[in-house]
Every structure is written in structure tokens, then in C-alpha cells.
């Protein structure tokens, strides 16, 4: 009998599994770090919460962190967003949609709310952005 691949026994889509297991950029910036804008979103249905922190330098994201409480997909969404955001300017950040997140992470229909959670967290960052985010 064939054994299921050892490292992903629950058969999550590969991008989700990889990000969930490695969770790059997990954590947060020390309070008061210059240029940091924090956005948070939650999905009441799934009782998940995502906090995204982007540190801006000269109008672009220089570094990013995330924290998440929720299923592996919502954690992977946070990790992907934090990695993707680095180097982007505000206009590029504003262009991200939940659909793109779903495509990048191969998020299945029943987890679509996790992609919305990611989009909401990014929107929350953009909403709190000062006119000139550069320090």
C-alpha cells in the first residue's frame, strides 16, 4: 500500500503547507519601530485573526511581519502576504485581491474566507497609512 507523502499527511495544497510549516516573517516589530503600520482583520465565522505589520521606507515596504490565529491556510496567507509585500509601493499593495491570494496559495473554495482575511488585513494597513509613510 502506498504511503502518503510523509511531510504533508493532511494533503494541504503545497504552497499552503510549505508556508505553514516554515512561517517566514512570523512575529512583530518592537513597539515604536519607525515606519511600521499595523493592520488587523478577523473572520468571525472561522474565529481567525490576522495581524499584518509593514515597515515603510521611502514609500516602499522595507520589511514585514505577521501574526495569525487560525487554521493553517490563514497562517499561510499571513506568511505569504508578509513576504510578498516587501519591496512593493502603496499602489502595488492596493492592487492585491483575494482572488490573487487564492490563486497563489491554491486556496480551495471552502477556505476562500482565508483569502478575504488576507485582503482585509492588507486593506487595514493601507487605511491607516499616513499621507507620507516614509520616516
Amino acid at each position: 500500500m502506498p504511503l502518503v507523502e510523509d511531510s504533508n499527511p493532511f494533503a494541504y495544497p503545497a504552497p499552503i503547507w510549505t508556508l505553514f510549516r516554515s512561517t517566514p516573517r512570523a512575529g512583530g516589530f518592537a513597539p515604536g519601530t519607525p515606519g511600521v503600520v499595523t493592520g488587523e482583520a478577523q473572520s468571525n465565522a472561522a474565529r481567525s485573526r490576522l495581524r499584518l505589520q509593514l515597515r515603510f521606507e521611502r514609500g516602499r515596504v522595507a520589511d514585514a511581519r505577521f501574526r495569525a490565529y487560525g487554521c493553517p491556510t490563514s497562517i499561510a496567507v499571513g506568511a505569504w502576504l508578509a513576504g510578498w509585500a516587501v519591496g512593493k509601493d502603496v499602489r502595488e499593495l492596493a492592487g492585491l485581491s483575494a482572488a490573487r491570494l487564492r490563486k497563489e496559495l491554491e486556496i480551495p473554495d471552502q477556505r476562500a474566507h482565508c483569502a478575504l482575511l488576507g485582503e482585509d488585513a492588507l486593506r487595514a494597513v493601507l487605511d491607516r497609512l499616513p499621507e507620507d509613510p516614509s520616516p
Binding site: M1, P2, L3, V4, D6, P9, F10, A11
Partner: peptide, 12 residues
Amino acid sequence: SVHRYGRAARDA
């Protein structure tokens, strides 16, 4: 069961 043994059984 959802773990890998369970999945291998399901495939079979």
C-alpha cells in the same frame, strides 16, 4: 482517520 495512515487506507 485523517492522518497519513488513514489517507493511505482511503486511497487503497
